[in-house]
Each structure stands twice: as structure tokens, then as C-alpha cells.
Amino acid sequence: MRHLISHAGPLIMLSAGLFFSVGAVTSLDLGSFRRMGPGAFPLLVGGLLCLLALIGLVQNLRHPLPVDHADPVAVLGVTGGVVGFALLTPLLGVLPATFIAVLTTAAVIPGFRWPMRLALAAGVAVGVWLIFVLCLGIPFTAIKGI
């Protein structure tokens, strides 16, 4: 089963190559050799990617490269942190969003005690304020309403 999954790697690349080369042929002007259109170069590189992906697939059929195990909890923690930041920034401002995003990501790290997580979140929020607002003067809404 893992062998089968391993072949998905080159297949992903093949589909990306096909996407760009087919997209170039169908929707862009290829031009002539002398005066190349916007589609010529993507077609060329996309074709090359397809070729390489096929070579990679053949290599993989002979000696499959192992696939690493995914860590869904880490993915969830990081995704949660980023999503939290993106959703909360317009609602509450950058600093509260920072605080909650740090907590969300830190929550999935084992062995990290809650007081430490809270301290880290507060520390990062202060750091962001110091670097981005105070030193660089970036026009953020630091905390909504203030």
C-alpha cells in the first residue's frame, strides 16, 4: 500500500506539468519560434516537467522511495494557528490575534505546560508590538478599538 502511495509523488508532478502545458496550448498564444507568445515557455517547461515526472515514475516503480508518515496533529496545530490569526485580525486586531494563534499552535506541542504557553503567547504579542509597531512603524490595527 505504501508503495502505491509512494508513486503518487511523481504523479502529482505529472499532473502539474500537464496542467501548465495543456493550459498554455488551450488558452495562450504560442507565437512563432522567432517571436514567442506568452504560452511558448510554459509549454516547454511544462512538457519537460511531464517528461521528468515519467522518468521519476519509472525510477520509483523500480526502487520506490519511502514516504514519510504525516503528523496530522502538527498540521492541525499550525493550520489552526494561521487560520486563527487570519480570522481574528480583522475582528480584534493584530495583537489579540497573535496571542490566540500562539496558544493554538502551542497547544499541540506535548510537554509544554499551560502557564508556559500563556507566557509565550504574551511574550510574542509584546515582541510583535515592539518590532512591528514601535520599531518599524507599520500601520497595523494593533488592538481593535484602541
Binding site: 494561521v82 487570519a86 497573535t98 500562539v102 506541542i109 510537554g111 512591528f132 497595523f140
Partner: peptide, 27 residues
Amino acid sequence: PHYFLYPAVIVLICVGVYSISNSLTDI
């Protein structure tokens, strides 16, 4: 323990990207 670094990195990335043009799409 250096795991304290990872949540900080993730958030600094978000703030850094957002600081360029205050665009949530970039995040």
C-alpha cells in the same frame, strides 16, 4: 527546550506576511 520557538515562528510568519500590504489573502 526549543519547542517554544515553533509557535512563535508561525505567528511571526503571519505577522510578517500581513505587514507587507495588510492583505489577509497573502496569509
